[in-house]
Structure formats: structure tokens, C-alpha cells
Nucleic acid binder design. Structure first.
Lengths: 171, 171
DNA sequence: AATTTTAGTCAGGGGGACCTGATTAAAATG
DNA sequence: CATTTTAATCAGGTCCCCCTGACTAAAATT
């Protein structure tokens, strides 16, 4: 039976981490030139990530996979097109479909989102890194089951697009 | 010189954590009744947190402390008033000022934002909790210096409103 | 061939985080 | 007392995420 105080400490630190890291890269972005925002796993970022894992999906497929309305998907895709991160092209096999593909820039951007090692990790020792990885693995595992409980249908797609993507990348 | 692979592993897990936890509470919220959104350390959430640490500030003070335009602050405050989380009241000492105070509900909400121990922490052992706390302390420390470098003026206010708040709470 | 299903699009909307500009009311100050 | 500073407000805007409704074009079905 783990100690409640220890849990609280960790919880506090996690919240702090959330706030501090949020604020830190808010400030970082304000000072860099004409860059765009974090993106993360929302809206346009979601699309990018999904494509990075399997390129050339149709809008409909993207929408289903990401649990979004097709119209929202279309909106995000269009925004990404304007930023030259993806391209739209009519499927010749089924001319109703629009195939979305990452541009080179899009691929780079998606990779950068993911592959970048934050500077603060460089300060940790090997042991700490291992510990952190182990702990996060456990936590993420737990969260996956939460997602699965809330929406079993979505859980699969989600795990496919996100977790697998990251797993291949790093482990 | 820490191992780059280990850094990458940890980085991947952190990103995964970010995405997974985001998605998890997105789903969680969709299923609960008429609740409001995460709030966090942004917009309305920022205000709430600041007030939880020192109630009865004026809008101007809030704005300065949180690095927001006074108009933005006013907007968030008004939204919070509509949700019955804070009250506005003219200062009798200086009738230009509007004093913002948390309602009971607001206080509860702010506390809930902070005090809740996420379920996933319950799965960790005491040792893991200690490790996590230690690691996050280190990381947060690093991020504070980043913030300080980016905006020394803001750093103080920030640390005051956030870090101290959490520290009193937990440690 | 006629109908239905499917993939997209346009239009419009709701809520959120922020900001600048212009204006008012109340203090502070010369 | 007149002017300036200060705290707020209104108005209007930008961009983001995300959804419903209405409608078209192209496949699939009957």
C-alpha cells in the first residue's frame, strides 16, 4: 500500500511540471522568429502524427482514426496544406476520395515534434533516465486502459496511431 | 555523459505521456455530465490558480502577475463570474479597483485542479514515487531557469504564484 | 436506369486564449 | 482646479479546436 504523501508529492510535481513546461515553451516561442505553435496531439498536430505513422490516408480515414468529424478533419487538412505540410490529391481509383500525403516539410515537422530531446533531459543521469522511462511506461499503460474503458472503439485506433508510432521510433 | 538512447527513450515516453494523458482526460470529460474543461495554467485556469494562492486581488494585479493584458484578464474574470467561480466587487478604498474573490465553488475547483492525485500514481511503488518526484524536481528546476532566462521579470511572479502555491500544498 | 450510400465541400456556430485601440471614471499630482 | 495617471470597460480582431446542417459528385446497389 503505497504512501499517500509520496503520491501527493509526485502529483504536485507533475502538475508543476505541466505548468512550468507550458509556460517555458510559451515564452520560448514568443522570442523565436516566425515559428508556429506546439501543435501536439490536437487538431492539425493530430493529423500530422497520424500521417507520419501511415501516409496517404483519405480524409475519411483520418477522421475515423482520430475520432473527428469529417468537416473538422477537412479544416485541419486545409490549414496544413496552406502551410505546405501536406498535399491533397484525388484518388484515381475512387474519385470521391481525397488522399492526404505529407510533404517533405511535413515529414520533417512531424519528426521534429517527436524526435527532439528536450534539453532538460540532458541533465538527468543514466539511472534517472531509466527510472523515468520505466515509470512513464507504467503510467502510460494505465492511461491506455483508461482510454480503453472510456471508448473501446477509439482505443485501438488511438494506440495504433500514437503508441506504435512512438514505439517504433524509440524503443 | 549520459547515454543519448536513454534520453530518447525517456523523451519518447514523455511525449507519449503528453498525448495519452491529454486524450484520456478528453474522453473522461466527454462522458461526465455538464462539467467544464481542463482549465490548467492558461486563461481562466491561470486566474483561478493565482487567486487560490492569494485571494482578493484586483484585476490589474492579476494581469501583471500573470503576464496578461488587462483586457484579457477582464475577459477571463467575466467568464469565471458566469460560472460562479469568482465574484467581482468594487474596492471601497479605491473605487477604481475591482476586487476579485473566489467563491466557495471556485476555491473547490482550484483545489481540485491541484490536490487530486491521479489514479495512475496509485499504481506506482513507494520507490518509484520517490524517484519520480526527484526527477521532476530536477526537471522543473531546469525549466525555471529557462523561464528566468527568457523573461527574468516574469520569472519571479511566476514562481511566486505557481511554485510556492504547490510547495505549500504538498511538501 | 434509378436510388442509395459515401467522401467531400460550404456555411455557420460555439467556446477558448489572447491582443490592440478608444473611452470613462476615479484617484493622484502639479 | 486642471491635468495626468490608473483601473476598467467596450468594441473589434486573430487564430485555434471542433461540431451540426445542407448540398454535390461519384461510386455502389437494387
Amino acid at each position: 500500500m503505497p504512501n499517500l504523501d509520496k503520491q501527493k508529492n509526485a502529483a504536485g510535481k507533475l502538475i508543476e511540471f505541466d505548468m512550468v513546461s507550458h509556460t517555458a515553451d510559451e515564452l520560448a516561442h514568443r522570442h523565436s522568429a516566425k515559428d508556429d505553435h506546439p501543435l501536439r496531439f490536437q487538431g492539425q498536430g493530430k493529423i500530422l502524427l497520424a500521417l507520419a505513422q501511415s501516409d496517404g490516408l483519405s480524409q475519411k480515414e483520418l477522421a475515423t482514426r482520430l475520432n473527428l468529424a469529417v468537416q473538422s478533419t477537412a479544416e485541419f487538412v486545409n490549414k496544413l496544406v496552406k502551410k505546405d505540410l501536406v498535399t491533397k490529391e484525388k484518388s484515381s481509383a475512387d474519385r470521391r476520395k481525397t488522399i492526404i500525403r505529407l510533404t517533405d516539410l511535413g515529414r520533417e515537422t512531424a519528426a521534429a515534434e517527436t524526435a527532439k530531446v528536450p534539453a532538460y533531459l540532458e541533465e538527468l543521469t543514466d539511472t534517472e533516465l531509466d527510472q523515468l522511462t520505466a515509470i512513464l511506461t507504467k503510467i502510460n499503460h494505465h492511461l491506455y486502459s483508461d482510454i480503453d474503458q472510456a471508448s473501446p472503439t477509439y482505443a485501438n485506433k488511438f494506440q495504433e496511431t500514437v503508441a506504435d508510432h512512438l514505439r517504433d521510433w524509440f524503443m
